[in-house]
């Protein structure tokens, strides 16, 4: 089976075999990226526009690198400081871009659902690079690839996702993917950072981190946004670290071979102890970054193939009409 869709908007609609196909393809790109010549031609002649309505360094760089390695012409548009500020609506921006005939549009937007809206208005493949607190599907894929390479499988694992679940699109995409691949997901965090109804997502919810980590194969930490730290959702950084920061003592509750993940950027001493983040036997945080490029290459490669096939079909149909 392969992944053949016009857009890559979220994990929610993906079948397990599509996820597996993308991860298999990504594995090939990991090998390519580790080789001396990192070039492929899957996107040769195509134009990729990275449109980030929200500041991003790592994800944008990862998409840019992925596109370039596949031979695309890549353009970065930092929308956080552009025409949007002058009052242009999202749909007008989309139509303007559409007129430039891009092939791939990589979009991050602070509002949930905005990327779906955009996808309805343009004639190219759209990739969701994070929309509001809804989904961040390439992050979930890269996490899955990291886990699969470390653990040899994605099913029947106990994965503890810890921290600010309520505001995290990373958490939502990961929960969807891991549930679909038949792993057990636990959500660990203070109740103020746990979305209402989390228990109905097919996850186990824990206030107590030690209990939540008991027997876990994977410990996935989430970033705590600075603006949420001070008295709003949690009393203070120090109380948060005391209860929900990953340190050696809490990690000892997980399985001896449990891996530690973090989507970055990390707040050392807030959600994770620096010693743990740097522990090469446990932490796979650097590997996650590497997998990120490979996964994005796999997604763009698959979308480009769909795009070529669609255009081919349209051309044939056009000829028939003539």
């Amino acid at each position: 089976m392969t992944f053949r869709r016009a857009h890559f908007l979220g994990i929610e609609s993906l079948r397990p075999d599509e996820i597996t196909a993308l991860l298999d393809l990504a594995d090939e790109y990991v090998a390519l990226n580790r080789s001396a010549s990192k070039h492929a031609e899957a996107l040769a002649g195509m134009t990729q526009i990275n449109m980030f309505f929200e500041a991003s360094t790592r994800t944008q760089a990862s998409f840019e690198l992925a596109g370039k390695r596949l031979g695309a012409d890549v353009m970065n548009m930092s929308m956080a400081h552009s025409s949007v500020k002058k009052g242009e609506t999202l749909i007008d921006t989309a139509l303007t871009l559409n007129a430039m005939h891009p092939d791939l549009l990589v979009v991050r937007h602070p509002h949930s659902g905005a990327v779906d809206l955009l996808a309805q208005k343009v004639n190219c493949a759209v990739i969701n690079a994070g929309d509001g607190r809804h989904e961040h599907p390439t992050q979930a894929l890269l996490d899955a690839l990291t886990i699969r390479r470390a653990k040899g499988r994605l099913h029947r694992l106990v994965v503890a996702i810890c921290g600010d679940i309520a505001h995290s699109r990373v958490a939502r995409s990961n929960i969807l993917l891991l549930n679909r691949m038949e792993s057990r997901v636990r959500l660990v965090g203070p109740p103020t950072l746990m979305p209402s109804g989390a228990a109905d997502w097919g996850c186990e919810v824990y206030d107590d981190m030690r209990a939540g980590l008991e027997g876990a194969d994977v410990v996935m930490m989430l970033r705590l946004q600075r603006e949420r730290m001070d008295g709003g959702f949690i009393p203070s950084e120090r109380e948060y670290f005391d209860r929900y920061g990953l340190d050696a003592e809490k990690l000892a509750c997980a399985r001896d071979d449990a891996i530690v993940m973090h989507p970055g950027p990390m707040n050392r001493g807030v959600e994770i102890d620096g010693m743990i983040a740097d522990d090469i036997n446990r932490s796979v945080i650097q590997e996650q970054v590497e997998m990120g490029v490979a996964v994005r290459m796999a997604v763009m490669d698959s979308l480009a193939q769909t795009l070529r096939e669609t255009r081919q079909r349209e051309r044939l149909r056009g000829m028939g009409d003539g």
Binding site: D230, G231, G232, I234, P235, S236, E239, R243
Partner: peptide, 8 residues
């Protein structure tokens, strides 16, 4: 305005 360190 801001919650105290209820846990500590």
């Amino acid at each position: 305005r801001e919650m105290a360190e209820i846990g500590f």
